[in-house]
Design a protein around this nucleic acid. Structure first.
Lengths: 233, 233
DNA sequence: GCGGATAATACTGTATCCATAATTATGAAC
DNA sequence: GTTCATAATTATGGATACAGTATTATCCGC
């Protein structure tokens, strides 16, 4: 999150950024497995670039926590410990709860305040939720998670705190390391859906406190689901 | 914060890390002023290194938000906007409040639970606070801020959530951009001291909720102080 | 046969070099 | 005199080459 980022929408991303994005995708897909060593030269060759932008990209990923740089030893894909999960999720719940709270307040103040299209923001959220219901019914996990992310992002946008969003995104980048595992959870989607309904209901009632609590519990519920999984495997 | 970082304590930091650290110091000291262009070549020459580690260091600082990388335009020191302050401090207050809350709980559970030296952790905090009182009396702003930081770090350590600490540290890295300004605030030290007393009192009473609130207000008070300053200048 | 030491190999980390793009200065035209 | 266009300069971004260190394998000694 840059303090000054009001540059023109053009300005294509630098090569190292593109490389970082491709690496993230591979890590999330577990094509680069947690704990695996990253062969700079091999990957650079594969991408058709030199080691320089590859190394710069790895520095960025290291700052994000997706990889671990061991001096003179090379670069390894990060792996989450149980302790990491125990520490991250409560914080994420705290932050996401605040987002829900702020977003609800914005909805409420938009109700009586401005003259703009009556609660169009809420309609957007409701539409996304409806999509969630559909994908859940179709048992389409990938689409569900995609729309789920869109829902949370829309809420963040509504809350209007870029730094809050920034921190959440940083955390989520790391949590995504378990995305593959999360997708394997049968029943989690239904549970998630129930929780989302509670969030949406609180939003509709403009009950900021309830929205915050519902979101908070929703996040912690996600962590509990991961616990189940790890215990089983 | 690395998921796997249990490497040997040796392994000296890579050159780019050292460079990043030196750059941070210069930025905080406003030797590299907010908004200023960073001349890679000149700085590399000055440090007696090549541009490669310098560029890698800048990538790291960019990830931290301390500098802004404009493609094909170079690197500029970040500058905080009023909006940044308005968005950051409430989040920081939220997180630091949680730290105080958790730390207090740890103190409380250590009281009846374990057999170890009776509330030695609290004594450490009390000792740091006593130092704060001394430096405040001597009007030694630099030392005050140093010990203040130590106090907050000790509290984080006590809270025992590495990710919570990690996020706070990330934010503080950025907030430090205004450190020079904060130091110029006459009267802020006395105010800060009063708030610290409230925090310490809550800790002593093992009142987690009060500690959280006191810390929360303490952080927001810091932001209010910066407001005053900006209005004046 | 096993353990330690040494040498070879391979990868990280740093430096140098080249190309491309952006900015600025200079000159010409209106 | 001002503005626009073009050229030159300068810095960024990327590639390649080199050095240093860690790891591993092999050989010698016990």
């Amino acid at each position: 999150m840059n303090a000054r980022d009001d540059s023109k929408p053009l300005a294509l991303p630098a090569l190292y950024e593109q490389v970082a994005e491709r690496l993230r995708a591979r890590i999330y897909a577990h094509e680069l497995a947690p704990g695996a060593w990253i062969d700079e030269q091999a990957l650079a060759d594969e991408f058709g670039i030199s080691r320089t932008p590859m190394r710069e990209a790895l520095k960025v990923l290291a700052a994000e926590g997706l990889v671990v740089l061991k001096p003179r030893r090379g670069c390894y894909v990060a792996q989450m410990s149980e302790r990491d999960l125990d520490e991250i999720f409560p914080v994420l719940a705290l932050l996401e709860g605040r987002v829900a709270e702020e977003a609800t307040r914005r909805l409420a103040s938009a109700d009586d305040g401005s003259r703009r299209p009556a609660n169009s923001d809420f309609e957007r959220l409701a539409a996304l939720h409806a999509e969630l219901e559909r994908h859940a019914a179709a048992n389409d996990a990938d689409r569900f998670f995609e729309i789920n992310q869109a829902f949370h992002e829309t809420l963040q946008e509504l809350a209007g705190n870029r730094w809050l969003s920034h921190l959440i995104n940083d955390i989520r980048k790391f949590v995504k390391l378990t995305r593959r595992d999360s997708l394997r959870l049968e029943g989690r989607i239904q549970q998630s859906l129930v929780e989302h309904r509670a969030i949406l209901a609180a939003l509709e009632r403009r009950d900021a406190s309830a929205a915050a609590h519902a979101m908070h519990d929703h996040i912690l519920s996600g962590r509990a689901a991961l616990s189940q999984l790890m215990k089983g495997s």
